[in-house]
Structure formats: C-alpha cells, structure tokens
C-alpha cells in the first residue's frame, strides 16, 4: 500500500505539462517580438512576417543607445526608482503604525472602528474621480511634482495596507506587549522593538504590492507631474511617442529598456512577489 501511494505521487502528468509549456509561447511571443525588433535596423523591417520576427542581420545595441538618449532614460529610471522606493518606505512606516494603532484600539473603542471602516472604504474610490480635484489641489499647494506623487501614492495604498497590517496583527497576541509593558517599556518603544520586527512577513507583502502598483502606474504621474518636464519610466514611453514616429526599432528598444528593471526585480524576488500578491489578494 505504501509503495503504491508513493509511486502515484511520482507519476508526471505529461500531457498537461506539454500543454502548459506550449502555453508559455503566448507569454514569450510578444516579448520575443519586442526584443527582436529592438535589435534590428529600420531597413530590415520588410513588409512581411519574417521582416518583423526573424533574427537581425547584425546584432547591435545601437537602438538601445539611441533610445536612452531620446527618452532621457537614466533620469526617468531615477525618478521611477525614487518615487517607488520612497512610497514603499513611507508606506511601511506609516501604514504599519496606523494598522497597529487602529487595530489594537478597535476592541475598546467605537471611534476607531469607524476610522478603520472609513479608511478601508477608500479602496472603492477610483482615481478617475479624485484626479481632477487633485490636479488643482496639488498645484495650489505647490506639490505638483515628484513629492506630490509620492504623497498621493501613500494615501491611495493606505486602505489596502492598513487592512493587511490590521489583519496580520489580529493573530499576534496582546500578551506579548503586556509583558513588555510590565517591564516599563513605552507603547512607542514596544511597537518599534517588538511589533514592527514581528510584522516582517507583512512588510514584504506590502512592499511588493505597493512597489508593483507604483512602478507601473501611468495615470498619477501623467496628470500630476505633467508641468515639471520630469518623467517616470512608463510616462517617458507615452511622452516620446511622437519622437519615435514610425521608427519602431527605436520605440521597441525603449520599451525593452522600460521592462528590464521590473523583470530583473521579478527574477531576483520571484518567490516574495508571488507570495506577496497572493497574500494581499486573499486576505
């Protein structure tokens, strides 16, 4: 009986495996097409499929070099990194504290229950309705720039993150904190020395979710930073469309450059990203 059970678990379902491998083509094909076009010269783009999809005659990175200049790549990358890293760090600090303060008070206080529901219901507010008033508001406050975008992201992701932190904390017994309180530690100190390190798995989830939404977002920087002449990486692709014109080779080199950072990040932190996304959605 035992040996039979073991054998069964080892049997590989080959038809499904092969189908799934074939299915990967739908994912790799667009990326392959983009890469191969980015490596070619406009003269190689004949009007048939081979013109677009065959290997280039000479392998050259010239398009990438030109795309970097045209789209001001390093500055756009810098802006994207700055905005994403700042948003993630501030989110972990502020939303973690908020999740703790609100979550721990909800049992005793009705007001905190209302505050919690109030913040969490912000999840249903689409950016489209906040967009126009926010453009006016950030301009009046003089923060229609990268700083304003960071501030807005911290507010937009607050509902989800506070909910995640609060949910995680409800599994951490209060008794741990009480022991520290008896020893005379302040609430502030308890949070930073005991609770904050304990929430490490949730920090990872929050970091992944916040980073990916921030990095790929177009709409917020599009409407808030349009007057500053500064671009994020996706925004640069939008703003330089006219300069690419019909030079698809240049455009695709630029798209590939825009995709590389997040792909590298994914390859390095694949496990954390998949876990983070699954945790965030399911909780």
């Amino acid at each position: 009986m035992m040996s039979k059970g073991n054998k069964q678990t080892r049997v590989v379902n080959w038809p499904v495996t092969i189908l799934l491998i074939a299915g990967c083509l739908t994912i790799f094909f667009p990326l392959y097409m983009a890469l191969i076009i980015a490596l070619k010269q406009p003269s190689e783009m004949t009007n048939n499929i081979a013109g677009a999809l065959s290997f280039p005659q000479t392998w050259s990175l010239a398009n990438f070099r030109e795309a970097m200049q045209v789209t001001d790549f390093w500055n756009s990358l810098g802006n994207s990194l700055l905005i994403t890293v700042a948003t993630v760090v501030i989110s972990i600090i502020l939303h973690g504290m908020a999740g703790y303060a609100i979550g721990r008070s909800m049992k005793q206080s009705k007001i905190y229950n209302i505050i919690y529901m109030f913040i969490v219901s912000g999840m249903f507010v689409p950016f489209a309705i906040l967009m126009m008033p926010l453009v006016k508001q950030t301009a009046q406050m003089g923060i229609a720039n990268r700083f304003g975008v960071i501030l807005l992201y911290v507010v937009f992701y607050m509902p989800l993150n506070v909910m995640l932190y609060r949910g995680y904390l409800s599994n951490i017994p209060v008794a741990i904190e009480e022991a520290a309180r008896v020893d005379g530690a302040s609430t502030w100190k308890i949070y930073w020395t005991i609770i904050f390190p304990m929430m490490k798995p949730m920090h990872a989830t929050v970091a992944v979710l916040t980073a990916m939404s921030t990095w790929n977002d177009v709409m917020t920087p599009l409407v808030i930073m349009s007057g500053t002449g500064k671009n994020t990486l996706p925004l640069a692709q939008l703003n330089f469309q006219t300069q690419f014109g019909t030079n698809y080779n240049l455009a695709f080199a630029s798209y590939i450059l825009a995709l590389i950072p997040i792909l590298l990040f994914y390859i390095v932190c694949q496990k954390q990203i998949i876990n983070g996304v699954a945790n965030g959605a399911v909780k």
């Binding site: 994912i27 667009p30 990916m212 825009a258 995709l259 997040i262 998949i274 996304v277």
Partner: peptide, 18 residues
Amino acid sequence: RGIYFIPNVLGGLVIGYI
C-alpha cells in the same frame, strides 16, 4: 508558475504599445 506570472509584473502601457 513563475513564467505564467510574468505578464502581471509588466506595465500595462508598454505592453499595450507592443
């Protein structure tokens, strides 16, 4: 699993252009 998740990490705008 890793491969099938790739489209989620890529930005909608650039994917749209491709």
